[in-house]
């Protein structure tokens, strides 16, 4: 079983993927301009890091959707305009508050919805907390993992920063707004490094089939999911 990662060719993708800290975790690295169906053969989990050129991702969309429809896992991180090419993704941008932690009595608004999810055996919840660029609407039947309340200025009704979707496709979509490859690869924001320390090990274990399947019943937070028709 193979964990693969797309490389967007930026300095921060290069540093995060090829730096000493994580290189051993990836079985295969694929430069986004050279992605082909053949290059995905044998891959069980594919990570699309944050901040890959979205024009290229849209060009590759059919290939990536075929990959997940074959029963594989596609992880799509933030700032990839996922709402334009990933099935089921709905996105509402927010002005980014990089400074929330400097505000008086600052408390993060993120909430951990599924502490029993196997990801959180590897990633402490506090290591998922940094600024965010918008929120995702969770497809009905998918599992919201981390959510935030409605935008105080009314831009959205709240949503997820990370969800696990096993219903929209025949495979599994992990979708997040977070952008750790950029920040870790820029030698900035230690929380993003701590996040990747656990997240990439979880992704590798998922590729190896080592993570237990969710055994609790699926549930969703109704106010955060699409209304039923």
């Amino acid at each position: 079983m193979t964990l693969a990662v797309l490389d967007g060719g930026t300095y921060y993708h290069h540093e995060t993927i090829n730096g000493e800290r994580y290189r051993h975790l990836f079985d295969r690295v694929m430069y986004v301009r050279e992605l082909t169906p053949e290059s995905l053969a044998g891959v069980s989990v594919l990570i699309v890091p944050d901040r890959i050129n979205a024009n290229l991702l849209r060009q590759h969309a059919a290939m990536l959707i075929d990959f997940v429809q074959a029963g594989h896992t596609l992880i799509v991180l933030g700032e990839n305009e996922a709402e334009t090419w990933v099935p089921g993704v709905k996105w509402s941008p927010r002005p980014t508050n990089f400074w929330w932690w400097l505000e008086k009595d600052a408390q993060p608004t993120q909430q951990l919805v599924r502490p029993e999810h196997d990801l959180f055996r590897h990633v402490p919840f506090q290591d998922t907390i940094w600024h965010f660029h918008g929120v995702l609407t969770v497809p009905r039947g998918a599992d919201a993992l981390i959510v935030v309340p409605p935008d105080p200025e009314g831009r959205d009704g709240g949503g997820a920063l990370l969800y696990d979707d096993r219903v929209t496709t025949r495979g599994r979509l992990i979708v997040s707004t977070l952008d750790p490859f950029y920040h870790h690869g820029s030698n900035f924001m230690p929380a993003t490094t701590r996040f990747l320390d656990g997240f990439l090990v979880w992704a590798r274990d998922t590729a190896n089939g080592a993570n237990a399947k969710l055994d609790s019943p699926r549930r969703s937070i109704e106010r955060l999911t699409e209304p039923s028709n």
């Binding site: 060719g9 930026t10 300095y11 290069h14 301009r33 050129n53």
Partner: peptide, 8 residues
């Protein structure tokens, strides 16, 4: 920009 595909 810092965001360009330097490999290309």
């Amino acid at each position: 920009s810092m965001h360009v595909d330097q490999r290309y």
